[in-house]
């Protein structure tokens, strides 16, 4: 069922409504931000790659960065009729695939991606209701806009289900 869904590649973002399903396969340090308005079953997925857009001067794709993806998702959902105060978020990913012993954890891009998405959510008052983040393993994500459920598949732990609150 993961592969039949609309695929959201690295740095891509899509907002749509039920009965569509959105998926991102093989997330490492990237984060899938799944935003949902339960009442009208409108939702979106951003495949965030990097934490911070401020280093970027020219036109860029808002789905790529944590700080821009969250407000952009919300804006696009509101265009489809969502109400900002009803929107909830589930985040998945932010792993650290290759650990070097000497490396400072502050430089870990997975951790920084998680922080940037969290901060962006706090800034506009959107709650993160569930998460599967960190660790040293890849994840695949399926977001079912019919139910608001997010399925997370890993190689060693099978498939786990996260629900909007």
């Amino acid at each position: 069922m993961f592969v039949d869904a609309i695929q959201i590649g690295m740095a891509e973002l899509k907002v749509t409504q039920a009965p569509e399903k959105l998926a991102s396969l093989g997330l490492g340090s990237c984060i899938a931000v799944c935003a949902y308005d339960q009442a009208i079953k409108v939702g979106g997925l951003a495949h965030v790659m990097l934490p911070d857009s401020s280093i970027f001067r020219e036109n860029f794709n808002p789905g790529k960065f944590g700080d821009t993806a969250v407000p952009f998702l919300v804006r696009e959902m509101v265009k489809l009729g969502a109400i900002q105060s009803r929107i909830q978020v589930i985040i998945v990913g932010g792993a650290h695939m290759f650990a070097f012993k000497s490396e400072d954890s502050l430089l870990d891009i997975g951790v920084r991606n998680i922080q940037s998405v969290e901060e962006a959510c706090v800034k506009i008052g959107i709650p993160i209701v569930a998460r599967s983040v960190g660790g040293k393993f890849g994840r695949s994500v399926l977001f079912d806009l019919n139910t608001g459920k997010v399925y997370v598949r890993t190689i060693n732990q099978g498939t786990m289900e996260l629900s909007m609150g």
Binding site: G26, L27, S29, A95, F98, G138, I155
Partner: peptide, 13 residues
Amino acid sequence: AYACDMAGAIINS
């Protein structure tokens, strides 16, 4: 550094 996992997760990083 070693990892055994999904190709996407490894190459994207």
